[in-house]
Structure formats: C-alpha cells, structure tokens
Design a binder for these strands. Structure first.
Lengths: 138, 138
DNA sequence: AGTCAGATGCAAATGCTTCTCAATCTTGAT
DNA sequence: ATCAAGATTGAGAAGCATTTGCATCTGACT
C-alpha cells in the first residue's frame, strides 16, 4: 500500500534520492521548525527522532535540499547559516537585532521595483535577498 | 603645519586611534578600490604600498573601521566577506552571478516601502541589506 | 630623547562547513 | 523474502576565512 502522506518522504523520492531515516528526521525537523534553525540546532533536534544522525549528514542533506530548491539557506548574521523550508511563498526577512527573532514579510511592490531596477541595468533577477535589521519601535 | 588632506589619516585621528603606516595603506586601498575587494585582496594591495602589512592587521583594521562606520562589510556569496568604504550615499547591490561583478544602485521608493513595512510590524529599521543576484538579460 | 599604552606580526587557535573512506543501508531485481 | 550494487552514513581529518595570544615595535605626548 501507499501512504497518503503529503510530503515528508515524497520530497525525497521526487529528488530521486534514497529515503533514509536520517533524511526523514532532518526533513521532519525543518517542517516542525517555526524559527530559522542553524545546522547545529537541526542536528540536535533530528537526533531526538533518530540519535544516529551525524553532523556530516545534516550538512550533506541541507546542501542537497538547497540545491533541489526545497530548503533555503540564510546568512543573517554571518555566524553560521540558518535554514528554512522553501515550500511556502517567497518572502523576505526582518531580523530583530535584540532578540534574534525573524519575522517574514512579502511586498509585491518592492519585488516589482527590484525587477524594474535590474531591467534598467540590463539584468534579469535570478533571486534576491532583502533583510531588514530592526529594533522594536518605541 | 597641518596637511590640508581631505580624509586619509583624518579618518583615523577622528577615531581616536593611532595613525600607523599599515592603517594608512589599508585605507588607501579602500579609497582606490572600485570593486568590492576581499580581505585577501586588500592585503595584497596594501602590501604594494607597505610590505609589512600582515593579514591579522588587515582583519583588525577592517573590523575597527567597520565598527566606526567607515567601512561596510558585505557577505555576497558566502565565500569570504567583501569590503567597501561607507562614505558615499547608501546603496544596495546587484551581483552578476556569472562574472561576480557588483553594480551599485539606490531606490528611494524601495527604501520607503521597507520603512513602511517595518513600521507596520512595529519596528524601526536599523539597517538593511538588499541584494539582487542576476544574469545579463538576453 | 624618553615613556608607555596602543599596534603589529607571527603563528596557533577558532568555528563553521566540507571531504575522506570504510562500513552500512536502500532499492530494484530475483 | 533474499541479493547484489551502488548510494548513504558516521567519525574524524581537512579546509577556509577570520580571530586571538603574546612578545616585540612604535606613534604620540612630555
């Protein structure tokens, strides 16, 4: 029989790679995460589900998923990348400088302006990154 | 007598730090640079003016200048930071994915939209980063 | 000139990420 | 179910860019 599962391992099969315990654990962590965990956090959480997961595998899997477009890598603060699933609609980030919290937002108007600017310079945007580093307004 | 010099060592004096040969060389490199050099490039170029400059000093000086707001650090590709003087007007970057070239641009409208978005979320923008990763339009 | 905290060079040390390789699984076929 | 073959993994070594410890210089003020 076939699981009516929405995505967990379906993602992997779609990639044409093997469905391993470790990869499922990592994918699970990413699905559960509401924050933007670092590789280290992902390792810790994945090990709760499968203690055998190693650091190397976390990095290998994240790299694989990133290349596949399933995961997005962010370099907010320069002290280690932070990851998130890229399944939802594209969005940008607002980073709270005091708490490190990350708020997602999206602005069609900004995206449009970006495209116009690139076009004027003779370019097509492949992807972009917009990050607002903020503090709570008084 | 006092030099009528515009900025080279004036910058340093303003910081209240010592004016050293090495710092002047690094500052000179940054002034001359039209690209966005990496620490390694800065070291190489600075050594043309003063062979005694060391890697450690380049990093230390860049960190100091960054903290002072004189230099801006960019992490475009994740493979090493790229630096530029922060004296001119604020601008964002368009990175050519094929050549690595960096084009600077500025959009008051985008900045305004950013501020509005942050405000709606209850934040004040401390600084932001907007990078467009592009390829030449056909 | 003399003094001394700040600055530098060198090399060792970090911290994150990637790679090496033998051992172990997943998968498609039997 | 069982197998073979190749993909995948764990552990640790290796890489890189960047930082740091420390003994030695040197800029700046007296």
């Amino acid at each position: 029989m076939t699981k009516a599962d929405p995505t967990p391992e379906t993602d992997l099969r779609a990639e044409g790679v093997r469905v391993t315990r470790q990869r499922l654990a990592i994918l699970h962590v990413l699905r559960e995460a509401s924050d933007h965990p670092r590789a280290e956090d992902i390792l810790t959480r994945a090990r709760q589900q499968d203690p055998s997961v190693s650091q190397a595998t976390v990095y290998r899997t994240l790299a694989m998923l990133e290349k596949a477009g399933t995961v997005q890598r962010n370099d907010f603060d320069g002290a280690g990348a932070r990851f998130e699933l890229a399944d939802r609609q594209h969005h940008d980030h607002l980073i709270d400088l005091d708490t490190g919290a990350v708020v997602e937002f999206h602005s069609a108007r900004i995206e449009q302006l970006q495209a116009e600017i690139a076009a004027e310079l003779g370019y097509d945007i492949e992807w972009h990154r917009l990050e607002l580093y903020c503090r709570k307004a008084p």
